[in-house]
Amino acid sequence: MNCCHFITRCVVGTRTVSQHQRNWRSSVCSGMKVEVELFATLRLKLPKPTYQLDMPEGTTIKDLMRELDRITGQPVSKELFRGDEVIPGTVILLNGKNILHLNGVETPLEPGKIAVFPPVAGG
């Protein structure tokens, strides 16, 4: 299955490919399937709590969050990152592993599940 089945555009580095370039894109996208589950305030702000995406090899967590920015029309990445750093209190789990213990925002994606918990406050 190519990326056409999940998203209307496919991220290739810093370049996106539009839907009318479907044949070219299917040869570029490798079809790494990820499920992004959002929690807390992100779940309330965005249209859906879960997104299933097909991303190319070499995509990082930062790339994935920018793709969510584009898909949702909301600044998801700005709520999670300050530059190239994860905002304190943010928890992003890649297949159950905290990205802070991996390579931070530059952690390469793996097929599977990404759980995203934005920083919370209060008591």
Rank of each mutant, 00 (worst) to 15 (best):
V76L: 08
M32S: 08
K62S: 04
S18G: 15
K45R: 09
R82M: 10
G122D: 03
L42A: 07
V34Y: 02
G83D: 02
R70I: 15
T41P: 03
G122K: 04
D69W: 15
K97P: 15
T90G: 07
P75F: 13
T72N: 04
T90F: 02
P49R: 09
L109D: 01
N2D: 12
G122P: 06
K33W: 07
G96P: 13
H101G: 02
P111L: 07
R9H: 12
P75R: 04
V36N: 02
E106V: 01
S26I: 11
H5S: 10
M1R: 03
K62Q: 05
V17A: 11
N103M: 09
G112H: 05
K78E: 13
V34W: 01
K78N: 10
V86R: 00
M32I: 13
Q19M: 06
L94N: 05
A121V: 14
F81Q: 00
I7E: 02
R15G: 02
L100G: 01
Q52H: 05
P47T: 10
G112R: 07
D54I: 05
T107S: 01
N98T: 08
P108F: 02
G104L: 00
G89C: 14
N95E: 04
P47E: 15
F117R: 05
S30F: 10
K45G: 02
I61D: 00
R25L: 15
I7S: 11
K97W: 12
L94A: 03
K113C: 04
L68T: 06
E57R: 06
A115V: 11
V36M: 04
G123Q: 06
C10P: 15
R66P: 03
N95F: 14
P75I: 12
F81P: 00
P56R: 02
R15Y: 15
L38T: 12
V116A: 03
G31R: 15
P47V: 13
G58H: 09
K45H: 12
R70D: 10
M32R: 14
M65K: 07
R66Y: 14
G31H: 12
A115R: 11
P56K: 02
G83E: 02
T59K: 01
L94V: 11
S27I: 09
K45V: 05
M65V: 15
I92F: 03
M65A: 05
F81K: 00
S77Y: 15
C10W: 14
Y51Q: 02
S27L: 10
T90N: 03
R22N: 12
G89L: 14
L53V: 05
G31A: 07
D63N: 09
P111S: 12
E37Y: 13
S77N: 08
D63I: 01
F6G: 06
Y51E: 04
K45Y: 08
V91N: 11
R43S: 04
V105Y: 00
L68Q: 06
R66D: 09
E79R: 01
V120L: 10
L100I: 08
H101P: 01
E37N: 11
R82H: 13
